[in-house]
Amino acid sequence: MINQWIATPKRTKAILETYGFSFKKSLGQNFIIDVNILKNIIQKAGIDERSGAVEIGPGIGALTEQLAVSAEKVIAYEIDQRLLPILNDTLSRYGNIEIINEDILKANVADMLKSRFKPSQPIYVVANLPYYITTPILMKLLREDLPAASLTVMIQKEVAERMAAKPNTKSYGSLSIAVQYYTEAKVVMNVPKSVFMPPPNVDSSVLKLTRREKAPVHVVDEDFFFDMVQACFAQRRKTLRNNLIRHFESAADNRTISNGLKQAGIDETRRGESLDMEEFAELANTFYKIVKSGA
């Protein structure tokens, strides 16, 4: 059976030729052709025979197949209708896979998980995500509060580093805060371009996002908190004070902004990259009260 794995150069080429499949650049299609990489991803995700697995963008089924071997049940979302007959063929030997032809950004994933998996079943998202749409997909899944223990995803290396970055580093920014508010983020492996067909133009990493039981900080209003974080990184070389003056414009004058930073206990000459999440929460909560009170 090992010789029949989808994730080999020979088998992948044969499948593509059989169906006359051509890659769509607009969908960011890069298929993995190394079984060991896939097995390593699944091992890092912590999947076993009791697990439910959710995949996004199965392609011709390389990762889907390995998930089916390891997990109890696999649900895979595929937006490209051309791939449906290929998946029906390549995965026909497995009875524990369901392919859903739907755009993951429009799908009600939370309801699907509740209807397809057992209430006590551990659920994991595992995917080789299209690089052009990585962040919208992950933020949708994180903000929907899915009953999934973790998300283990292959993404562009630079983006993975940004999501897992710590304060006072070049990669640290609003995306780091957004992801780490919901999860503990860790880059668990790097992946060479050579294991893809066709090879992507960028390096790849596998990022594991483990869901937090509760947010690590208390914020009065989540939307306001995330807006404040983005504002502080709007122009990285500018100070917090200058970025916030630009952000609030007519909603708060310069003196009010200086007073707000003082109330939050944060030096107005600092830059966004120097603040940790607790400091961002204090900043957002302070300014939320100021803005809402009209002070």
Rank of each mutant, 00 (worst) to 15 (best):
D203M: 14
F225P: 01
Q156N: 03
A165S: 09
R236G: 02
P200K: 00
D145M: 02
V179I: 15
A164M: 09
T169P: 07
P198L: 00
N168C: 14
T183Y: 03
L244S: 04
E144L: 08
T152C: 13
M154S: 12
Y172T: 03
R255Q: 14
L146D: 05
S194Y: 01
Q156I: 00
V188I: 05
H247T: 09
V219N: 01
A164D: 03
A149M: 13
T183M: 03
A160H: 02
M189Q: 12
Y182F: 15
R211Q: 05
M139H: 09
L142Q: 07
V179N: 01
L151P: 06
D221N: 14
D203C: 10
Q230L: 02
Y182D: 11
A160K: 02
E222A: 11
S250W: 11
L244I: 00
V229D: 08
E249R: 15
D145V: 00
P167S: 08
E249A: 15
L151A: 12
T152E: 13
Y181P: 06
T210G: 07
D227I: 00
L240Q: 05
H218G: 07
V202Q: 02
V188F: 04
P200A: 04
L142I: 05
V188H: 04
T210N: 10
P147N: 05
A231L: 09
D253K: 01
S258F: 00
P192R: 00
T210P: 07
Q180N: 04
F224Q: 04
V229I: 06
F233R: 02
F248Y: 12
L207K: 03
S204H: 00
S174L: 09
V191L: 04
T152Y: 11
V187R: 13
D227K: 15
N254A: 15
L240T: 04
M154I: 12
H247Y: 14
L261I: 05
I257W: 02
G173H: 10
D203K: 14
I257V: 13
I257T: 06
T135C: 07
I245F: 14
Q156W: 00
E144N: 07
G173A: 10
Y182G: 11
D253S: 01
S204D: 01
M189F: 02
V187I: 08
D221P: 05
L146P: 05
V217M: 06
P200I: 02
K214T: 02
Y182T: 11
I177Q: 03
L138V: 13
V220Y: 11
Y172C: 06
R211D: 00
Y172D: 03
F248P: 08
I155C: 10
V188D: 08
Y181N: 05
N168V: 12
S174M: 09
Q180K: 04
I155Y: 07
R212M: 09
D203F: 11
A160P: 01
L244N: 03
R237H: 04
I257K: 05
S150H: 09
V187H: 11
A215T: 10
V179M: 12
I257L: 11
L138Q: 01
M163V: 10
H247S: 11
D227E: 14
N242K: 09
P199N: 07
V219W: 04
F233D: 10
E158Y: 00
N259L: 15
L175N: 03
N168G: 10
S150K: 06
R212L: 15
Y181K: 09
A148K: 00
L141H: 04
L146F: 04
P192C: 08
Q180D: 00
I177T: 08
N168R: 15
